[in-house]
Amino acid sequence: MSARGSAPLQRIEELAETSGATVRNIRVYQERGLLQPPIRQGRTALYGPDHRSRLDLILRLLNRGYTFATIEELLIAERHGFTLAELLEVESVRGERRPSGSRRRLTRAESQAVASFDMPEELIDVGESLGLITEPGAADHFFSDVYMADLLRDLIVLGVDEEGIEKIGRLFMEGQSRAAEAFTVLVETVRGAGMDQAVFEKRVRSILPRAGAAARLIFLSAAETLLTERHGFSRG
């Protein structure tokens, strides 16, 4: 870890005093992997500017109401190439969606305006099977939200043609649909507990955010491995 300029290293007590954190909490952040290990000089543990910057970030996120688990997810995803600003924006939008469960949907016409070509029928069929289209056969709401449209736009800018869009879309959606089958194991396990149906449904749905976060991190790790091992990319 590099020290920035001539900024002095600090003992944990000094870091706590200057940051407004407590020594105990700093140690907790380290134990949870949120804060980097200290610099060792003999038997003395010291902290530099990078530690202070990370600690300030952790404290800001905690003040915004983020849990340790969410902060850990953000920091891991940051290492996969996302900026924290992008991730916080996504988390903010996700938080706004939770109360109503509604999503900003794009019509098929809006999606095609982005693409400048008709959506491949096979891609529409897959989207319909996943419930991304509100009424079977209508194809009124193909994309579930603006993030999918943004991805489509980026792919087109990079030069992916209609056939490539269809392949990418099918792989993405079929893969996620297959992964969602894992909930069958959960449902079959919990259903046998004999709890009230409303409680049962609430318990199962409570796992969705965590499962979504895990799926995203698994995808990022798998994509990074594929790019480096199959296509010769440098490790990000």
Rank of each mutant, 00 (worst) to 15 (best):
R103W: 11
A113F: 03
R64V: 06
V199A: 14
E122R: 14
A211K: 08
L158T: 03
E201C: 08
G194K: 04
S206Q: 15
V23W: 13
Q10H: 07
G192L: 12
R153N: 12
F233Q: 09
R191H: 13
Y147A: 07
L208K: 09
A138Y: 06
A215E: 03
E86A: 07
A85N: 12
E181A: 12
V157Q: 00
R4Q: 09
Q112I: 00
T228F: 06
I71M: 00
A7T: 11
T67H: 02
V160I: 01
G175K: 02
E188V: 12
E72W: 12
T134C: 06
S6V: 14
R191M: 15
R104H: 13
F82H: 05
S100V: 13
Q112S: 12
L220R: 01
A223V: 14
S234F: 12
L15Y: 08
L151D: 03
I76C: 14
A3R: 13
L171K: 10
A138N: 06
I12N: 09
S206W: 03
R210Y: 14
D150Q: 08
L208G: 11
R203P: 07
E14N: 09
S102H: 13
V114C: 01
E122K: 14
G33Y: 01
F233E: 05
P209V: 14
D140S: 07
E17C: 12
E17Y: 05
G20C: 04
R97Y: 04
D154F: 04
L123Y: 13
E163T: 08
G48H: 05
S100E: 13
I39H: 10
